[in-house]
């Protein structure tokens, strides 16, 4: 319960960084922080008290493993999510560099000139 709340404080700080800051790199940093906190929340939901990693060692029997292992399904899905986060971060960085080359600033409030 306390762990969930501390994790959600990190999420809220990421949302604040995304809303209130005007620098584009600060916004990208806010997206990174939100992504960390959500991945961590899913892993925290699957933790089991005195658990073991979901890897079967040769000296274990299967019933002991099935009783004490942590939840493997969030780990598999978060593994996918982390790697996708790297791809979207690269795309956001490319957009930031292109915006700087066009407008000569990183300030979001200056980048409002839409031309058709």
């Amino acid at each position: 319960m306390l762990q969930y709340l501390l994790d959600m404080i990190i999420f809220a700080l990421g949302i604040y960084c995304l809303i209130a800051k005007r620098h584009i790199i600060k916004k990208i940093i806010g997206m990174c922080i939100i992504e960390y906190s959500i991945n961590l929340f899913l892993i925290l939901l699957g933790y089991r008290m005195h658990g073991i990693a979901p890897i079967i060692l040769p000296e274990m029997n299967n019933s002991y493993f099935a009783q004490y292992s942590v939840d493997p399904l969030p780990q598999a899905l978060v593994l996918t999510s982390i790697v996708i986060g790297l791809g979207t971060l690269a795309l956001m960085a490319a957009f930031a560099i292109k915006l700087y080359e066009k407008y000569r600033t990183f300030d979001m409030s200056e980048i409002h000139r839409l031309r058709g």
Binding site: M1, L45, G51, A66, L73
Partner: peptide, 16 residues
């Protein structure tokens, strides 16, 4: 929400 360190293993118990 379920309490910490007490997971809901309805799907993944089959995997284990």
């Amino acid at each position: 929400v379920i309490p910490f360190a007490n997971p809901l293993m309805r799907v993944s118990q089959h995997y284990l």
